[in-house]
């Protein structure tokens, strides 16, 4: 992969980040009333803090100046002060972000581990019994809303069987090996809910990509080489089928973050998703804005990663 390709992808990421920030800011600017009206009436906030916030957000400046000020502040990590938690927003988010990333990462991994073999098997045996079962399960999987699957799992594994803890605890009160086991146990359900939802749509993507690739000429060439069906599938079919799948996975990322918010809320996972909900319920505007912004940045970041993967998987792209 060439360096120009990398740089070009980076250059494309910047306008989309700017675009997203404009959309966010527009929403904020269009919001009726004073988003900081809460400040004046909230006795917990000293008047000077309220005044400095008003000044920082420049509520009386023209829109474009306000946008630039706001963007510069966001990019500096200067995200304001959380009224509800009484600490700086950036500190708060940095505390919560790793948990969210770990849950999402583990869920993606689970999704790939399930969907890749299932999708490949289904795609190489189209309309077989296995394919039909896999297809039906995939349909059920992505028609089940994450909040319902989450409750179902809690009902089965926590309430009925009592195998897994119902809610996630940040402070486990254990150390070493025991801490690890507890940590894994309490992560199983959130990761499974998110991962299986993702995996369900991934199965369909992989299947259709494999279906498209197996009938291509170079797969016949590979078969004529006498390298065995296994190598034909893994080296020649799966390897190229992954290229479109990567793009589709990147397109799915916004949905994944939505699922992460719901999952964190159900299992009380202390990530930025549950932070967003609790900030909304307590009218904590700086936190709400910052978390939304972080989610937007994450989407752009994952799209960038997908682009890089794409260039790495498909030599034709990187040379163009």
């Amino acid at each position: 992969m060439s360096r120009q390709y990398l740089i070009r992808r980076l250059m494309i990421a910047i306008p989309s980040l700017l675009g997203i920030s404009i959309v966010l800011f527009t929403v904020l600017a269009l919001a009726p009333g004073d988003p900081f009206g809460e400040l004046a009436s909230n006795p917990a906030i000293p008047p000077e803090v309220a005044a400095s916030l008003r000044a920082k957000f420049g509520l009386d400046d023209p829109v474009w100046t306000r946008y630039v000020h706001w963007l510069v502040a966001m990019l500096h990590g200067d995200w304001g002060f959380s009224f509800a938690s009484r600490i700086d927003v950036d500190t708060l988010i940095l505390q919560r972000l790793p948990t969210t990333l770990i849950v999402i990462g583990a869920a993606q991994l689970l999704a790939i581990l399930v969907a890749l073999p299932v999708g490949v098997l289904a795609g190489t045996r189209p309309y077989s019994l296995f394919d039909q079962i896999a297809n039906t399960l995939a349909f059920i999987g992505f028609s089940l809303p994450t909040f319902f699957t989450g409750l179902l799992l809690i009902l089965i594994f926590s309430v009925r069987l009592d195998w897994l803890p119902m809610v996630y605890r940040a402070d486990l009160g254990a150390t070493g090996w025991r801490w690890f086991v507890e940590e894994v146990k309490q992560s199983i359900m959130p990761v499974a809910v998110l991962g299986l939802f993702q995996g369900a749509s991934l199965v369909r993507y992989v299947r259709s990509a494999v279906l498209d690739v197996v009938r291509l000429d170079y797969v016949t060439t590979a078969r004529s080489k006498g390298i065995g069906e296994r190598k034909v599938i893994t080296r020649h079919v799966v390897r190229t089928a992954l290229i479109p799948v990567v793009t589709l996975v990147a397109l799915q990322m916004p949905v994944v973050f939505g699922g992460a918010i719901v999952t964190e809320q159900i299992f009380r996972v202390p990530g930025i998703g549950s932070l967003l909900i609790s900030a909304m319920l307590s009218n904590d505007t700086p936190v709400v804005m910052a978390v939304t912004f972080v989610f937007a940045c994450l989407v752009v970041l994952f799209n960038l990663i997908a682009d890089i993967l794409y260039g790495w998987l498909d030599p034709r792209i990187a040379y163009r």
């Binding site: 989309s16 675009g19 959309v23 009726p32 009333g33 916004p254 939505g258 918010i261 989407v299």
Partner: peptide, 23 residues
Amino acid sequence: ADLFLSLPQLPLLLLIIYLFRDA
């Protein structure tokens, strides 16, 4: 359209509802 496709839908949905609900 591409920009909207890459927006994090649920957070944005929540944000808009949060800001505009009362009005």
